[in-house]
Design a protein around this nucleic acid. Structure first.
Length: 471
RNA sequence: CGGGGUGUAGCACAGUUGGCUAGUGCGCUCGGUUUGGGACCGAGAGGCCGGAGGUUCGAGUCCUCUCACCCCGACCA
């Protein structure tokens, strides 16, 4: 196993090293795609199972729709096709013949699902309709990076239909809140939430809500999105229902999703010089037990280790019993992989009936009685989970600054990066000019009444917004 | 598609003004000693030097063409 520190001159290289050395994923021979390895996929499975539970608790049912979408479906909605056409992979042949109509590999499933929604929805009694799909999608991005942006990625996409705007608003904000809570509770990620500017919103949406995390290099990363699609798609796909008065009406829709990018987000937010740090709730291995093996005490030590595994019920623990590498090697390896707790057990410990417990989040080592582990470990896992959130939150707060003038804005951006809270007049020209000159974009709009001036043009601001350079 | 860079063993890289049998470290295999923070000694295996063409007595090295990948931008979850 190679090491991280020496090669990692900049953040980008550090990131690639962590992905590789923590054994999460490899580049695939297919350009822009990646092979997710067992350890990386185990993280995704944990994210999936926890989030899937929350989705179902909200009354959303899982479904599966086809990978291939007739090109004409996409073309039915003008903004949507304009937004996605450039990044679509298109199938032109099948069965050895040229197809009469090209099939697009889904870049997102709105169109193919909503064509069917038109059949499923007839009456107000059919509403709200709430479904979710776990799937892979393809977007032909120009530059890719494992987990953060890949040509193919795995995600979850929720799609709902409602009687009116209020129903869709409520659902869009419910999904946003669900993501915010999930990010906090399971991924220990503090996120900013709010509306995107029209320029940054989803192609075809009325508005887009987003959760935004802050990476250690001071760049923002969009972790999840939730869109109120208005009646855009119900108009192009003719999704209508009869209300209580027999009147024919268009449904209001939402869609919302998070992807394998969450894994990339974990890396860029929680990672450190030693590699990955995983929040206990989604770590594939929560506790690794490293035996110190000497010939005369080997069996006793291993037996004690196995006993710890069986004592730790409801904890994902395992013994690293390899005798081909030294304990020091194992320590380093599991640190790169981000395992929250390491327990060391050797002959010296056995004499005292104790062991060494090391935390990945702080590096702190303590001694603990073996008989107490079953209470100490769960408590410590919770503490690590909370501490990681607190650390990330403190980092974000330290790196969120406000700027009232454009000079100040540019200075903060250059010196610190991070989020910058500034007034914005709501004019797209100002937004574009700021982006062109500084690379910073509006991440989310703070939805509250304010009295301040636009950071660029100086006219009355509609809102304060968080700017940042982004992934 | 623009700008920069790299292609030599599984990985990371050396390789001088062209010169003998292409090297080093990590990893791998075998043997032994080790094991509380990435162990050590010894012996091995592993190469179409990205590809094609050229110059030359002789090319990893020089020339031409090509291909691939990486980084920075435009695009984006």
């Amino acid at each position: 196993m190679s090491k991280i520190t020496s090669q990692s001159k900049d953040f980008s290289q550090w990131y690639l090293d962590v992905v590789k050395i923590a054994d999460l994923a490899d580049y695939s021979k297919v350009k822009g795609c990646m092979v997710i390895k067992p350890y990386g996929y185990a993280i995704w499975e944990n994210i999936q199972s926890e989030l899937d539970r929350l989705i179902k608790e909200a009354g959303v049912k899982n479904v599966y729709f086809p990978l291939l979408i007739p090109e004409s479906f996409l073309q039915r909605e003008k903004d949507h096709v304009e937004g996605f056409a450039p990044e679509c992979a298109v199938v032109t042949h099948g069965g050895g013949k040229k197809l009469t109509e090209n099939l697009v590999i889904r870049p997102t499933s709105e169109t193919i699902m909503y064509d069917t929604f038109a059949d499923w929805i007839q009456s107000h009694r059919d509403l709200p309709l709430k479904i979710n799909q776990w799937a892979n999608i393809i977007r032909w991005e120009m530059r890719t990076r494992p987990f953060l942006r890949t040509t193919e990625f795995l995600w979850q996409e929720g799609h709902t239909a409602h009687k009116d705007k209020a129903g869709a608003d409520e659902e869009a904000y419910r999904a946003l809140k669900m993501y915010e809570d999930f990010d906090k509770e399971f991924l220990a990620l503090p996120v900013l939430t709010g509306k995107k500017s029209d320029r940054e919103k989803f192609a075809g949406a009325l508005y887009t809500l987003s959760t935004e995390a802050l990476a250690r290099d001071g760049k923002a990363i969009q972790a999840g999105t939730s869109h109120n699609l208005g009646t855009t798609f119900s108009e192009s796909f003719n999704i209508q229902y009869q209300d209580e008065n027999g009147e024919l009406k268009r449904v209001w829709q939402t869609s919302w999703g998070v992807s394998t990018r969450l894994i990339g987000t974990l890396i860029v937010v929680h990672g450190d010089e030693q590699g990955l740090r995983l929040p206990p709730k989604i770590a594939p291995v929560q506790v690794v037990i490293v035996p110190i093996l000497k010939d005369d005490s080997k069996d006793k030590v291993l037996a004690a280790c196995n006993q710890v595994v069986s004592d730790l019920t409801n904890v994902r623990s395992e013994v690293d019993a390899r005798d081909t590498v030294s304990p020091g090697y194992k320590f380093a390896e599991w640190e790169v992989k981000g395992v929250p707790i390491r327990i060391e057990i050797g002959p010296r410990d056995l004499e005292n009936g104790s062991c060494v417990v090391a935390r990945r989040d702080t590096g702190e080592k303590t001694t603990c009685e073996l008989s107490q582990l079953f209470t100490v470990v769960p408590k410590l896992l919770k503490e690590i989970q909370d501490n990681m959130f607190a650390q990330a939150l403190a980092y974000r707060e330290e790196n969120t600054r406000s700027a009232d003038t454009y000079d100040e804005f540019k200075k903060v951006l250059e010196e610190h990066g991070g989020f910058i809270l500034s007034g914005w007049c709501g004019n797209e020209d100002c937004e574009i000019k700021i982006q062109e000159e500084t690379k910073a974009t509006i991440r989310v709009i703070k939805e509250e009444e304010v009295k301040c001036k636009c950071v660029l043009c100086g006219s009355d601001a509609k809102n304060r917004v968080y700017f940042a350079k982004a992934y």
